[in-house]
């Protein structure tokens, strides 16, 4: 089977912001005076390879700064890899901790529509999915109020419900279950199981091992931009928590 996510020897370098010219004045003067300010660089990801098949769920664990978010950024197309090959199936949906892509001043409905437009969907396609999204998030009454007035739990519910109903082939989830109650979490686990049965590949990033256990069938453990270990969920989690 062809993988939904295929990453081969991925490297990602950041140029630190303070070491590059930030004004036209500085850029021009730098050229004229031949001032060479050395660029300060950081390698966030150093040679990662991974594959996720359709219907598979891969967990990513590791301390802060180990490259998890950078990898998700590359997979979602936000960041360009410095080196390496990345192949991801069309319609990738990304859900980051704060429900990124949701604009606080827009209403729930407008945010759902905007999410659809960002995926290149027409208004009609989005409207057809609206009842399911609202039912899942249980948000009918809040739909016309700005999302900044939502409670954290409500916000997370609507954000999750929106992306899972857009028929993604690949779902990238970063710390999304840090908020919300047990019931909502159970609802999410159920929904993710359904999605995987339909062939959706999932990458799930979390610091909470219990959630990784519930969702993922394999795990990669990252440290300082490299893979420390990978394999079946239980085995890797035990090694990770032990050391």
């Amino acid at each position: 089977m062809e993988p939904a996510i295929y990453v081969e020897d991925l490297w990602k370098r950041y140029v630190l912001l303070h070491s590059r010219p930030r004004r036209i004045k500085d850029a021009v003067l730098g050229k004229i005076l031949r001032r060479h300010t050395p660029r300060e660089e950081v390698w966030a990801v150093k040679g990662i390879s991974l594959q996720v098949l359709p219907g598979q769920a891969l967990g990513m664990i590791g301390p802060n700064g180990s490259g998890k978010s950078t990898i998700l950024g590359v997979l979602s197309g936000v960041l360009r890899p410095t080196r390496g090959e990345v192949c991801v199936r069309e319609r990738v949906c990304t859900l980051l901790e704060a429900g990124a892509g949701f604009h606080p001043d827009l209403t729930g409905l407008e945010n759902i529509q905007l999410t659809g437009s960002l995926l290149g969907m027409s208004r009609r396609e989005v409207t057809a999915r609206l009842p399911q999204i609202l039912e899942f998030a249980d948000a009918q009454e809040f739909i016309d109020t700005a999302v900044r007035t939502y409670s954290t739990g409500m916000f997370a519910r609507l954000a999750f419900s929106t992306v899972v109903h857009m028929d993604p082939d690949v779902l990238l989830l970063d710390e999304i279950l840090a908020v919300g109650d047990e019931e909502f979490h159970e609802q999410c686990y159920r929904r993710l199981r359904e999605m995987r049965q339909r062939g959706c590949a999932v990458i799930f990033v979390s610091h909470i091992m219990e959630q990784i256990r519930r969702i993922c069938d394999s795990v990669v453990w990252l440290g300082e931009g490299r893979i420390v270990a990978e394999g079946p969920t239980e085995e890797i989690i035990q090694r990770y928590t032990a050391g």
Binding site: S76, G77, V78, V92, T94, L96, A100, G101, H103, L118
Partner: peptide
């Protein structure tokens, strides 16, 4: 920036 930084668009 909140959108540009975090999701593809």
């Amino acid at each position: 920036r909140q959108m540009v930084k975090r999701i593809w668009m």
